[in-house]
Design a protein around this nucleic acid. Structure first.
Lengths: 155, 155
DNA sequence: GTCAGTTAATATGGAAACCATATCATCTCC
DNA sequence: GGAGATGATATGGTTTCCATATTAACTGAC
């Protein structure tokens, strides 16, 4: 890592501090949104993973979420029972099922995030196109770094 | 909200997408770090809140974390027993206790995040001072927006 | 100064969740 | 064809959650 100046190093530390705060605040927001939907944190996290990655098998979802397969069975039982997800037979492997988030329920989640989404639109409106491109690139690289770090921890 | 162009609106959506991915990846990383420390998600989240906010009473910590006071008692029991936090008498209110994260254990957490921290330093080194200032400001405003949204959801 | 009302933290116990292990059906490869 | 592996779930013991109650302490009105 090659910082060009002490100012830049200090700024990097401030960026990392701000990132930690973002992570914390969004985790707390997610917890409240989940509570409003009467979902346990672990259930809501798994639902978010399904919304992000698309349909997955319970084993793959468990691995992604860092959960035991038996735990995932319980989580999916609750999500299915509450109408947030469905389990369907896999067409190619009769052992397997495919789990999908219920698309018609997405609006309920969307509505609870409306405040945050509106605030983000307002914030983004203050930046130029060039600035937003820089910000997006930074966030993409940060997400990739987070993913890589997680993979390294589970090896 | 007043976007100056369609390009800017589209970019805002990409920024929001990227932010969701960052939130998800950091949540998964936190889960794995917590697992390495043999801490339940809820325990690790509370420890992180103590590290971020400094000493707090159990009631204030429960409110911040969106947890029931009785749940917090159990969380603090586990954190105390495992040596991650201490409960001390409040000097001014004999009913109250003050919970502190154990400073000597901070290094263990720090070491598990070393990969991510190093990656963030590398990423930041690619940006100019001006760009890092923009990024930091954006993250600060995003954290504030997240906090405000959470407060609105709990009213 | 007294006392009713409120607050802070914890105790209790029933319900819910977690997960190590086992089970069964299915798939793969030799 | 069959041994070994895999995917998902069942089981049951343990752990966690939390509604409610309890106790000690604080506050403010009278």
């Amino acid at each position: 890592m090659s910082f060009k100046s002490t100012v830049q190093r200090r700024l990097a530390n401030r960026v990392k501090d701000a990132l930690r705060d973002v992570s914390l605040q969004l985790a707390l927001l997610n917890h409240q949104v989940g509570a409003r939907l009467k979902l346990r944190d672990v259930d809501f996290d798994c639902l978010n993973l399904l919304n992000q990655h698309g349909p997955l098998g319970p084993g793959a979802l468990a691995k992604l979420a860092g959960l035991h397969p038996a735990t995932m069975t319980g989580v999916l039982d609750r999500l299915e029972k509450a109408g947030w997800a469905t389990r369907d037979r896999d067409r190619e492997d009769r052992r397997a099922v495919v789990v999908r988030a219920a698309p018609e329920r997405g609006r309920e989640i969307f509505e609870l995030y409306a405040g945050m989404n509106g605030s983000m639109d307002d914030i983004c409106a203050d930046y130029t196109v060039e600035q937003l491109e820089i910000i997006e690139e930074f966030l993409r690289r940060t997400a990739a770094a987070g993913h890589d770090s997680t993979v390294k921890l589970t090896d």
